[in-house]
């Protein structure tokens, strides 16, 4: 076995994933090759360091906190519905106002003639003088008399 081939087998050798035949060839190479033996030794040291690493367990009460977290999220999701209702309600009000405005302007344009009459009645061109024998005329005559005094 060449060193290049042996190098590829270091990792599966450590994981005991070599076939019997591969393992025998690998062992024979390692016995004869100092360089590969030393590299394999380094790999084994690293593998042993992994094995000696502390195994960390979840802290006390972890499951309880997970379940509480889930329940909190579920409650929050449900609590969104009243807010959603308020948003829908406000949207309906805005929609009704908009429809009313649109309908109003539509009716205004549909009866254009009436609109003209209204505007012309407000114009000063159509102003008519007060009749002297009316109540308005008497009031104006009295006011003029007071001003002359």
């Amino acid at each position: 076995m060449r060193c290049s081939k042996a190098k590829k087998l270091f990792s599966p050798y450590i994981d005991t994933a070599l076939t019997k035949a591969e393992e025998e060839l690998f062992d024979a190479h390692i016995r004869d090759c100092n360089e590969c033996r030393s590299r394999l030794e380094e790999m084994k040291v690293m593998h042993n360091a992994f094995c000696s690493m502390e195994r960390l367990n979840a802290p006390y009460g972890f499951t309880t906190r997970v379940m509480a977290n889930i329940n909190e999220k579920r409650t929050k999701r449900w609590s969104l519905f009243p807010v959603l209702g308020m948003v829908i309600e406000a949207s309906v009000v805005v929609l009704v106002i908009m429809i009313g405005t649109r309908a109003g302007s539509f009716l205004g344009t549909a009866f254009t003639g009436q609109t003209t009459n209204i505007s012309s009645s407000l114009s000063l061109d159509t102003f008519e003088a007060v009749q002297p024998n009316s109540i308005g005329g008497a009031y104006l005559a009295m006011m003029e008399g007071n001003n002359e005094k």
Binding site: M53, R55, L56, A58, P59, F62, T63, V66, N69, K73
Partner: peptide
């Protein structure tokens, strides 16, 4: 699976202090 997931998270992020938050997120 809490211990396995916590251990995996602690070594993956290299920070046991924040591993609980990450593991909580995993289960969520």
């Amino acid at each position: 699976y809490q211990d396995s997931i916590f251990n995996l998270c602690a070594y993956m992020i290299g920070d046991p202090v924040n591993a609980e938050d990450v593991a909580q997120d995993v289960f969520l």
